[in-house]
Amino acid sequence: MRHIISILLENESGALSRVAGLFSARGYNIESLTVAVTEEPSLSRLTLVTRGSDEIIEQITKQLNKLVDVVKLIDLTEGEHIERELMLVKVRAVNGMREEVKRLTDIFRGKIIDVTESTYTIEMTGAGDKLDAFLKTLTGSTILETVRSGVSGISRGEKGLLL
C-alpha cells in the first residue's frame, strides 16, 4: 500500500539526513520526499511517500517518531486528505504537435509557461496519478525533461498536523 506520511521536524541541520538515513539503514523505500520550512521558522514540514505492508508502515512511523528531531507526524492516507504535486515538463513542439500539445495541456488544466520555436514548457499540478496520466498522453511527442516536486499533502477539514 502507498502511504503519505507528513512530518513536523525541527528545522535543524542534520534533521533531514536522520530521516533519509533511517530509510536507507532499515531498507524502507522512499518514493518521494519534499521538505520546506513552515510558518513557524523553527519547524520544517516534510512529506514522504512510501510503500509497504501494514507492519512495515507501522514500523516506519514508530521509528520516525523515535527520532529526536521529529516533533509530530501523521499518516495522511489514514484519513481524508488532499494530495498535490507540481510538475514541469519540457516537450519538443514542432509542426502539428504544437496544436496537439496545447490541446492536451488545456484538457489537463496545465499551463504553458515557456515557448520557443521548437519547445513548450508546461506547468501542471495535481495528484500523482493525474501527472502520470498526462505524461502517458504525451507519448506522441518527445519529452525533453520532466521535473516533479514530489507529493505534498494535507488532511481535509478540522483534522491536521498541528503542534
Binding site: E55, E58, N65
Partner: peptide, 11 residues
C-alpha cells in the same frame, strides 16, 4: 518502553 520494539519481529 520503546514502542518500536513492539510487534517489530513478532506480532
Amino acid at each position: 518502553i520503546d514502542p518500536s520494539s513492539i510487534s517489530k519481529n513478532v506480532k
